[in-house]
């Protein structure tokens, strides 16, 4: 296999795997931009994966599966929003409980929502259809970048969503509102913006994305239901938000880098490459890169006397009556 061919295949693997990760990350960028930290991503994605698979299995409709996955993700984030925004509970603790709750509930329901023939179990079932790759004529034959034009509809959708999100966040009035709520909620409130309502909207929106991210696994990449099938993608997404400096445009680069490293370690092994770097190290690389990115960003912000890239009010609840 020539190297051009290898890079194309590596890219294709990265895109297939990275789709779920990108949805979750993009959603979390919206949520965190509004000042809410949602560590419940892993549990929310798993609920999305489960509900999407269950609905598609029983109705044979992939579209309905994705929509239900999206709504389930939104519903789960609504719990987070209610606890952290309305009740002003600690965002870290709440997020962690949401992950534990979502993981447990999904694994529990996975043994209850299946068909009678399989003891109500969803594990071990195959879907009649999954989101297949759609090839764009001619374009998919170009070396390397052709990989971008031989992906599933869920990935194509991201090509639109990523630039749209960037435009929305930095070039529209609604985007300005979103950012102001995350940076300076008191000022935003003084300007007449309903801070808590804005935060509700973007936390739920983040949940929608996380739900679709889960469905991208259970309906497209590994079309099946398995206990805890997300395997930590939710946590990588949270690291990736930091790596992308809360910017949707950089999310695309981030997923290519993060997803690429995971794919790369498998490709190097499969190519019989004598491993100079142990595979265990490559497995921790995404987290390691995040730490390095954080260090670089912190140094830069000290140098420029500017503010750190994270939304200033991230993690702090807001109440208009608090002095």
């Amino acid at each position: 296999m020539n190297s051009l061919d290898l890079i194309t295949k590596l890219l294709a693997a990265t895109l297939a795997m990275g789709t779920s990760l990108t949805y979750a990350t993009l959603g979390e960028v919206f949520t965190e931009k509004s000042g809410v930290l949602n560590l419940g991503l892993e549990g929310t994605m798993l609920m999305g994966a489960l509900s999407g698979f269950a609905v598609t299995f029983h109705t044979q409709s992939l579209m309905l599966g994705v929509i239900i996955a999206m709504l389930t993700g939104g519903l789960f984030s609504l719990i987070h929003a209610f606890l952290t925004i309305s009740l002003r509970s600690n965002q870290v603790v709440t997020g962690l409980s949401i992950t534990m709750f979502g993981t447990g509930l999904a694994n529990f329901l996975g043994k209850r929502l299946g068909p009678v023939e399989n003891n109500l179990n969803l594990v071990g079932l195959n879907l009649a259809a999954k989101f297949e790759n759609i090839q764009i004529p001619l374009l998919h034959k170009i070396p390397v970048i052709g990989a971008f034009f031989d992906v599933s509809i869920l990935t194509y959708l991201l090509y639109i969503l990523l630039p749209l999100s960037w435009y929305f966040m930095y070039k529209t009035k609604h985007g300005l509102t979103l950012r102001s709520v995350g940076e300076a909620p008191r000022t935003a409130a003084a300007m007449g913006i309903n801070v808590n309502k804005t935060r509700y909207i973007y936390t739920v929106l983040g949940g929608f994305f996380a739900g679709v991210g889960g469905a991208a696994l259970s309906l497209s990449f590994t079309p099946s239901w398995n206990d805890s099938m997300t395997g930590g993608i939710g946590w990588i997404a949270i690291a990736l938000v930091i790596f992308s400096a809360w910017n949707p445009a950089r999310v695309a680069i981030g997923t290519l880098v993060f997803g690429g490293i995971t794919s790369l370690q498998f490709f190097l092994q499969a190519a019989g490459f004598k491993m100079v770097i142990p595979v265990q190290f490559l497995a921790i690389a995404p987290y390691f890169i995040t730490v390095v990115t954080l260090i670089i960003m912190t140094i830069n912000s000290i140098k420029n006397k500017g503010s750190f890239a994270s939304p200033s009010a991230l993690g702090t609840p807001f109440a208009i009556d608090e002095k």
């Binding site: 295949k9 590994t222 398995n226 395997g231 993608i233 019989g272």
Partner: peptide, 19 residues
């Protein structure tokens, strides 16, 4: 590096098939 992870297992197999 995992006993159980559908995504990683699939990716590992695909890299072998690609090879």
């Amino acid at each position: 590096n995992t006993w159980f992870d559908p995504s990683k297992e699939k990716q590992a197999a695909e890299s072998l098939l690609d090879g």
